[in-house]
Design a binder for these strands. Structure first.
Length: 503
RNA sequence: UCCUCCUUAGCUCAGUUGGUUAGAGCAUCUGACUGUUAAUCAGAGGGUCGUUGGUUCAAGUCCAACAGGGGGAGCCA
């Protein structure tokens, strides 16, 4: 190694730097999580990470993102020079080698007695914005590039990763095919929301027709295009050949939604299954949610415990009646261990109409007749007050649902299902799809959906159509539910929302 | 987009009926101490009070517009 080092010294400067770093990294760096979990007493190890605090001029709390628990590095007094010690500041990155020993202190079982400390990257303490103290989530959102260095966001993003992995594992183990549906699409036929336009026109000088309108024939795709609002229609095409497919990718909505539950760019999971009816669809969705939550409980217990404690602390600030009845872990275990309540839209309306809440006019929107769409206050009442568990609502009036949902025999409702979760609201929206061509075309005409533009979609109903169903699940809302984070902007690394596309 | 509240030091906040030099805790810096656990103790530095305009002898404080943020609603996942 030394030999290589000398040879590379003779090369141009850039190569030298590259080689020097490379040499440093060829070692037995051990993740702090492993050091803290393993039986490593008396072992000489090398760790690398970022300084959280430096106490008493000899105790460094080092974190490398593998866990929220820091490794205590002991720099024995007199062993290291003043120059070096002054550079051990909050945020600096270090390489430390030394022996693992039982800790005489109370905060940790083991500690690392440093024999060498190397500053890899300095962190100016006057400018580094993170301090060893509580920061507001709003402040951290403004420094989203650095918030990964905090315990809360470390936990959130380790869990986000874990859930994403669990999703693929769940579907893979069931024989589903992961289908990549396009991000750029040519139609907003589903009507799921406002879209972002995609063009390579010079916006100051786009190609125009004689009448002054935009001439999309000269645009990149030769037609108007936008970012996808859903991969469902394409997923259906896959399902009617591969049987069971799922998509998992980014989705875009240009709605001016300013809430703690909406993003302009979010990730959605959309399974689509051939030879499934609504009942099968519900069963899969419920099994899926339970599986994912269970996976987190088993594999992210430390991070969940941390977030549970954080949530408890946060709720202490609230008045008694606004606090949740269950702690985070308790809530997750409850969801895993109990069946979701399944009721029809019609039953839900009856429950709401006869509720004391409705009679005492406590709802902003009173429930007076069948056919109205449920407001979030109604959904919350059903989930949080009436049933106190996740609720699956089925068979909605066809007027308030999308064109592709299968019409029920009553002529009034469609085979739709929404799963409502406590604290989040609608987390899953799904349905059995209309597989009967005539019924589908008739419904499209009633709802002014351009039939010609969707011939490719209708072809699946012309050639070997079959009952099928699917659902969509907002990934960030799932993460919110699992982590207890109240603002959706805090469960995606770099949130996109109106007037904000920083980083 | 609507309703509502907020914007004062790096962070979290206080600032009375408009009135002299705008405060605290934490962080930072300097020194002391040295088995600490958000270390402790002493001292110091740090502010165009979100922006613009207005009312007034006088504005952090009152009014208006704009910007940003929180909570709620709509749209939805």
């Amino acid at each position: 190694m030394q030999h290589i080092y000398i040879v590379l010294l003779k090369l141009p400067e850039c190569y030298f730097i590259f080689a020097a770093i490379f040499q440093k990294m060829f070692n037995n760096r051990i993740r702090i999580k492993e050091v803290l979990n393993g039986e490593m007493i008396n072992h000489i190890v090398t760790v690398m990470g970022w300084v959280r605090t430096f106490r008493n001029n000899q105790f460094i709390a080092l974190n490398d993102g593998s866990t929220n628990n820091n490794l205590q590095i002991v720099a024995p007094l007199g062993q290291f020079g003043e120059e070096l010690l002054k550079r051990i500041t909050t945020g600096a990155s270090l390489k430390v080698t030394g022996e693992i020993a039982p800790s005489p202190g109370k905060g940790q079982k083991v500690e690392l007695k440093a024999s060498s400390i190397e500053i890899i990257g300095d962190s100016d303490p006057e400018k580094f914005p993170l301090q060893p103290k509580k920061h507001s989530l709003e402040f951290l959102r403004e420094i989203a590039h650095l918030r990964f260095r905090t315990n809360t966001f470390g936990s959130v993003f380790r869990i986000r990763h874990s859930l994403a992995f669990a999703i693929h594992k769940f579907f893979n183990d069931k024989g589903f095919v992961y289908l990549h549906t396009p991000i750029i699409t040519a139609s907003d036929a589903e009507g799921a929301g406002e879209t972002f336009h995609v063009t390579n026109f010079d916006l100051a000088n786009p190609s125009k027709n004689k009448d002054g309108s935009i001439n999309y024939k000269n645009d990149f795709f030769g037609r108007p295009t936008n970012l996808t609002v859903s991969g469902q229609l394409e997923a259906e095409l896959g399902a009617l050949a591969l049987s069971d497919v799922y998509t998992f990718g980014p989705t875009f909505r240009a709605e001016n939604s300013n809430t703690a539950r909406h993003l302009a760019e979010f990730w959605m999971i959309e399974p689509e299954m051939a030879f499934y009816d609504l009942e099968d669809d519900m069963n899969l969705a419920e099994e899926f949610i339970k599986y994912i939550i269970n996976y987190a409980l088993k594999n992210n217990r430390d991070d969940l415990d941390f977030l549970a404690a954080r949530l408890l602390e946060e709720e202490k600030q609230k008045p008694q009646n606004e606090r949740s009845e269950m702690g985070l872990i308790e809530k997750l275990e409850f969801v895993v261990n109990n069946n979701f309540e399944r009721i029809t839209y019609t039953e839900a309306i009856d429950i709401l109409k006869n509720s004391n809440h409705n009679k005492k006019m406590k709802f902003h929107f009173l429930i007076d007749k069948w056919g109205v769409d449920l407001q979030s206050e109604h959904e919350r009442y059903l989930v949080e007050k009436h049933f106190k568990k996740p609720v699956i609502l089925i068979n909605y009036p066809k007027e308030i649902k999308a064109f592709y949902m299968r019409q029920n025999d009553d002529g009034k409702t469609v085979a739709a299902m929404d799963i409502l979760a406590p604290g989040i609201g609608e987390i899953v929206g799904g349905s059995q799809r209309e597989e009967r061509l005539a019924k589908l075309e008739q419904r499209m005409k009633e709802m002014n959906i351009p039939v010609e533009e969707l011939q490719w979609y209708l072809d699946t109903r012309k050639f070997g159509t079959c009952p099928h169903a699917g659902f969509g699940l907002g990934f960030e809302r799932l993460i919110q539910f699992v982590t207890g984070m109240t603002n959706i902007r805090d469960v995606i690394p770099f949130p996109r929302f109106p007037k904000n596309a920083d980083f």
